[in-house]
Every structure is written in structure tokens, then in C-alpha cells.
Design a binder for these strands. Structure first.
Lengths: 346, 346
DNA sequence: TTGTAGGCGTTATCAC
DNA sequence: GTGATAACGCCTACAA
């Protein structure tokens, strides 16, 4: 068992290149004021020694880190890979690395992650759909007090100093529900996001708003509780179709739920969209490839990621920048999973 | 604009708690030898000061970090979220954080990431499907020389000191191709993984092996070049079906490719599986929800992640452990996308 | 451009 | 359990 070789330090490099320590530092950090021959000589020694700067030492001394923390519910929800890719692309382009944390919507896990990220002294935080509680607010306030930028993805502005990526859930849900109304549907079921959250409130408001605008009375039985999983779609659809007077269309909380619902409907020998129309939300990459292709509200998820990270890095670089809300528009994509109702409406 | 408050240091905590510095350190790191009342007093001051240990200082001094680097092609390929979740779950349980890097199969990007991770002094590396080139081998060798554990996910053991998560691609592809043969197919197309890689070699070997075993002559025209994308499936299927004598079944490189192929076939008014059978690979979460549900080889992706991270952390904790190959078995799942050919075979 | 000195916030190692 | 002291590897400031 050979023991690990000793790593070269900046001092070693400086000595071998016959320059001062700060010259090496300047070369590494691309600072001006070093002649080209010197630069090359230093670089050559760096290669020769296979020297890699120690990020800990540098971050400790310079009091800044080139890392950011990203906390999402779970990367296995197809919504988030796109978002994370957007974040990560921009971060990497500017030399930042990303800590990925899956909170599973679990509050204690989320807090635990935030503590961990604090130890790592990340330069900024991106938190997607989380922290809607007093403990979370406290942490956000502390970060703000420390002057550490925070970007959240969600439905409301959590903190005046945080950047919030705002999805237009109310409008979006209203829009897609209205699409069903326009097709002639009158009995429209709703498989809701997890209760208690803002998304639930907003989406529900959009759904109810569309019905009201159409002069359709809302019916509690047509609202099935759910979350963002395939299983919720299966259960929700089963529950709705068991009703004495089942809906002719279902508004699902997202594409995954819609897929689950369509799956359940198929097992009940219901055709989509002939017997029941189903809508999704998000436009995950596979939505258009499904059969039937999903009618859904597309969110510019990747762009939300790039814009979010850009805003975060801008604030890391210039702490004087203030919080803001960046609004993103979702867009109705009518595909195959919705159609006019077959029988006479009502 | 309030300026960021000054962070408390360990010294501050020690002073306020009227204990020595090392007592604070011991409390934080859960070391024995401190009385319970003292512990509580220290903890109370920590809370009061909202003190968070500085990971840089600690890592610099102790020469160890609680971070690992994960390099994958792209998290937007649905194969990887499951894998990454597996990795991350285990890492987090042991107090480690994960740097996520998307290399996009781009060699220079991959190398760039590895450099970055070296600066961060990550305690270990997980590299999925990458580094099959001399530069990569060099880096791996260097890491090994530094005594830094590496886990790779792929098809061959890259380095005797690395842990390799081995998928049984040859056998798996042979198995699923044989499934088609057993259904009665004789003309079986193949949409291949990217050429030049091991996966390509292995999968192709499996495909050809199954044909040979069945006494079917391989036909170059039935092998369409591709990669792991939906688009590759669309293109590959289009190309195969344009043949004078098109295949009655298609073996796709993975589920995404299969989905693309099915999509293209549908646009050509071919029914799956009646007119053409299509197989996938991986069993991504949505594979069973597709219509038709995909016949595919399931890989225990999440488990590959948990096992991989467990192996990595074990080696971080005990550098004397040697490299090994961990083999994972894939499993044939026959669902709806395959069926016997309609017409007379041949 | 150079060289030197000091310090970032920990951990480690002594002796006590 | 305390206290003092020396690193860890780098950045910054200053004088030259």
C-alpha cells in the first residue's frame, strides 16, 4: 500500500518557478500585472507538479466560496432535473459548483440540509418549493442578515431580500380549466396539489375561478386531494370516476398526476380523451411523447433555472442588489388528452 | 443597507461558555470526555450566538472534507435522477454533501469538472459513464495515487483501485433480444448506443450474440446508429422502417430511445406491438406507464446508487480497502410493447 | 514585480 | 477537563 504522495503547495510552485508566492496566486486567479513569460513559467511548473489549488485555504482566507446550495424536493420528480440543469449550467459557466440536496418535502430534512450548507459556507442558496413555515422564515431571515443571497422557487415572495421565481399558478390553472370549459365540459374534476401549501391554494383558486367565470357551480366531491405523484393521479381518478355522476374532464396537479390518472382510466376502460379529458401541468419532457400526448401548461423550467442562478450570482457579486420577484408565464399546450365531451353536457 | 453581522467563531463560543476551545470542538464533533452539563452549556451558547462551524477551516486543518463529487452525463436523462437519489441518500445519511456535475458527455467539460472538484478537495468521486480516454485514465490514476477513492458506473473496470458498478449489458441485451426471437421475430432492428463507447460494444455484442444463438444472420442495415435520446429513437425507427424489408421488432438503446421509436412508428401509422415490437432498456419510472407499457430490461438504478455511495464512503473511511467490481443484474420485464409478429416470419 | 509578515477559524498536541 | 501554541494553505497589505 503506497501512501498518498504529498501534495504540492503554492509555496512549492513559487520556489520551483523562482517567483514569489503572490505571483503564483495572481497567475492562478488570472489577475493582471504578470508578464507573459512569467505566467507561462508558472503554469508549466503547476502542470509539472500537478498542483491543484486548495479551495479550503483560499476560501477561508478570502472569505468567499465558489459554491452554491440547491435544495429541491426530489430530483426524481421530472420537473426538477430541467430546473437543476438550468441552475447548474449557469453556475458552472461562472466557476461555481452546486451542492444538490433532496429534501423530500420533509421539514426537518430541509432544515438539516440548510445547516449543512451553512457549514459549507455556500455563497448563495436556491430553495425550490420549501420553507413555508416559521422555522424556515427564521432561517431565511438569518441568511439575509448575513448578507447571503437566496433565490426561492415558489408562489409567493418569502422575504423582501430574496429573489423569488414566481410561477403563475392561479392564472395557469384558470387558463387550462377554461380550455376544458371551452371544449364544452361542465363537470370538471380536480386532483389537487398537497393541501396546506401555497401551490394548493393558488391552483385551487385558478380552478374555482375558471368555473365561476363560466357560471359552473363548484362541487366539493369533484375535488380529490392529491400530491405530485403518479399514485395521486391513479387514486384521484379512481375516486372521481366512482362518483354517481363522474366528471367528463380532470384537471391534474401536474403531468405526473395526469399520467397516473390516464393510467387508471385506461384500466377502467375509459378512453382518453373520448370518455374523459385529462390535463397536466409543467410540460415535462415526456409529456408530448405520451399517448395520448398531454394537454398541459408548459412552464419554462430550464429558463427558470438559468434566470434563477443568474440572479443569485449577480447578488453574490453585488450584495447591494435587492430582492425581486421574477415572474414566468406558463403557456397552454393543447395536445391529445383533451377533447369535447361525447355525450350531451351536464 | 445594513452590513452583514459578524459571525461568531468558536473562540467566541468558548469564551461565552467559559470553556476551552477544544471543549467546544469536542461538543460539536460529538467526541467523548465532556460532561453532560458542560455539553449543554456549550450547546446553549451555540444556539444563542447562532454559531455555525466553518467547514473550510475545519477541513483545511483536519485535511478531510465531507463532500463528494458526482459526475454524470446529464441529470435530464431520466436514468440518472434515480441513481443520483441513491447516491445522495446514502451520502447525506453519513453527513456528506454532494457536488453534482453534468458533463454532457463532453470530454473537456468532464475534465474541467474534475479539476474543479479537486480544488474543492472532495473526499471521493463518482463518475458515471465517462472518462473512457487516455486523459481520463491519467486523472483516475492520479486520484488513486493521491489515495482518493473513485467509484465508476459503467461497463468495464477502469482502474484496479477504483470501484466499478458493472451493468450486465451484454447479457441484458442478449436476453431481451432473445425475448423477441422467442416471440417469433426474425428481422430485428437495433438502435445502438453512441459508437465508440463500451456500452455500444457490449450492447451490440449482446444483440449479435442473441441472433447468432438463434441462427439468424446479422444484417448491417438493421443496425441504426444512435445515442440515448428520444430523437435517436425517432430517427432510428424512421431509418429502419424505410428499409425495403423492414424489421418486425426493434431493440432500442434505452427506454427514451424506445419511446422515440414508438412515437415515430405511430406517426408512420404503425401499431406497436402489432406491426412492430419495440424494447427499451433501464426501466425508467415512466416506462410502465407508457402506452403501450414498455417491455424493457430493468436495472436496479437506485440500488446501484446506494451501493456505489456506500462503497465510496467505506473507502473514504478506510483507505486500505481495495478496488472491486460490483455487478448488478438487470431483469427482463415483459409488458405491452412486444408481441409475436403478425405475418409469417422471415 | 518581490519578499515578508500576519491572519482566516479550525484541529492537534502538548503539558498540566 | 484547561491553556497555550503550532500548524493547515492561501490571500492581503505593505514596504521595497
Amino acid at each position: 500500500m503506497e501512501s498518498p504522495r504529498k501534495r504540492a503547495t503554492m509555496t512549492d510552485v513559487a520556489r520551483a518557478a523562482r517567483v514569489s508566492l503572490q505571483t503564483v496566486s495572481a497567475v492562478i486567479n488570472g489577475k493582471p500585472g504578470i508578464s507573459e513569460p512569467t505566467r507561462e513559467r508558472v503554469r508549466s511548473v503547476i502542470r509539472q507538479f500537478d498542483y491543484h489549488p486548495n479551495g479550503f485555504a483560499s476560501s477561508l482566507r478570502a472569505r468567499r466560496s465558489f459554491t452554491v446550495g440547491v435544495v429541491i424536493p426530489t430530483i426524481t420528480n421530472p420537473y426538477f432535473p430541467e430546473f437543476v440543469r438550468g441552475l447548474e449550467d449557469v453556475a458552472h459557466r461562472q466557476g461555481y459548483s452546486v451542492f444538490l440536496c433532496n429534501s423530500d418535502h420533509d421539514q426537518s430534512k430541509e432544515i438539516n440540509y440548510l445547516q449543512l450548507l451553512r457549514r459549507h459556507r455556500v455563497a448563495g442558496y436556491v430553495v425550490a418549493y420549501g420553507l413555508s413555515n416559521s422555522e424556515g422564515d427564521r432561517i431565511l431571515a438569518e441568511l439575509a442578515a448575513d448578507g447571503i443571497p437566496v433565490v426561492t422557487l415558489g408562489t409567493r415572495q418569502l422575504h423582501p431580500r430574496a429573489v423569488t421565481l414566481l410561477a403563475d399558478d392561479v392564472h395557469g390553472t384558470k387558463r387550462i380549466t377554461t380550455h376544458l370549459v371551452e371544449l364544452g365540459h361542465r363537470r370538471i374534476g380536480f386532483i389537487s396539489p398537497p393541501e396546506g401549501g401555497d401551490v394548493h391554494r393558488h391552483r385551487l383558486a385558478g380552478y374555482l375561478g375558471a368555473l365561476e367565470k363560466a357560471g359552473i357551480a363548484a362541487e366539493p366531491a369533484l375535488i380529490a386531494p392529491g400530491d405530485f405523484s403518479v399514485k395521486a393521479g391513479q387514486r384521484g381518478a379512481a375516486r372521481l370516476m366512482k362518483l354517481g355522476h363522474p366528471p367528463s374532464a380532470i384537471v391534474a396537479a401536474n403531468d405526473l398526476v395526469a399520467i397516473g390518472a390516464i393510467n387508471a382510466l385506461r384500466r377502467m376502460r375509459k378512453r382518453v380523451p373520448e370518455d374523459v379529458s385529462v390535463t397536466g401541468y409543467d410540460d415535462i419532457p415526456l409529456a408530448r411523447l405520451f399517448h395520448p400526448a398531454l394537454t398541459t401548461m408548459a412552464q419554462p423550467v430550464h429558463e427558470m433555472g438559468t434566470a434563477g442562478m443568474a440572479a443569485l450570482l449577480a447578488r453574490i457579486k453585488d450584495p447591494k442588489l435587492t430582492g425581486e420577484a421574477i415572474r414566468f408565464k406558463s403557456k397552454l399546450l393543447v395536445r391529445e388528452s383533451t377533447a369535447p365531451p361525447l355525450g350531451p353536457p351536464g
